[in-house]
Amino acid sequence: MSALTFTLKIESRQRIDCSPLTPDNLVEKSIADIAALTLYSGNQKLRVDAVFTISGDDASNIVINNSSAKLDYIGRDLKTGRITVHGDAGSYLGFSMRKGNIVVHGNVDAFAASGLSSGLIHIHGNVGDFLGAAIPGDRKGMKGGMVIVTGNAGDRVGDQMRRGVIFIEGNAGSYCASRMLAGTIGVLGSVAEYVGYGMRRGTILLTKTPVLHSTLQDCGSHTLPFLSLMFKSFNGLPTQFAKLNTSRVQRYAGDIANDGKGEILVLK
């Protein structure tokens, strides 16, 4: 069995909603059935084979080749299996994903991992704003699972995030972890202003002291044993965070304007 492969063959000017292309939706469908499925693009309905060349037969392992930033909702509600994207991906990657694995070899647009509750999203590239954030109207962003970004992330990473882990190996934009409810966000590079703005609970792991706004309070230097527990659980993950082993940190608590149970830990 070879991976069920969708190769993008058009250059769309409109965004295309790819949410039907998930393993649980395509399993036991023939290529002809898959080709006849409808994809929405603005107010147009497109057949899958009008957008993609389809090959392969293993629906549990989906590959999207020649992908572009116009392809939204890749892996929406994913419950099982694996999706590999070669090229860029649009907005809402892994939206409300419940389990499984998405790997992107390219850049990803806004609201990636929004509503993610379990599983792994690995982005080998940069990601736009609102990574793991709640969409407008939702009260909670990412609810579990793990996101690894090898490049940089935009603004509002983990806005209203509720649980789970986000690792950013590059830099993160402003308002990182804003209104965060709980969970863990790690940034190896730098973060822009207003990190942890309005955060309620949760942990932000940084390597450089950020510019802190006034409602984040310095709680001093500490050796926190839970960090070795956490780093041990990262062992074997495909990220540079797996190599961390110090448990010496500077602890900033906040945002005390919003309960103040969150923390920013700057590794020493």
Binding site: T203, H222, L224, F226, L229, M230, S233, K261, E263
Partner: peptide, 25 residues
Amino acid sequence: DGFQISKQFGGKRYWRVPVMDGEFI
């Protein structure tokens, strides 16, 4: 007393309770 922190790794939940020597895990 409200300052406790929950952390979940690998499907297990841990509690960090602030105590006078640091944190009780």
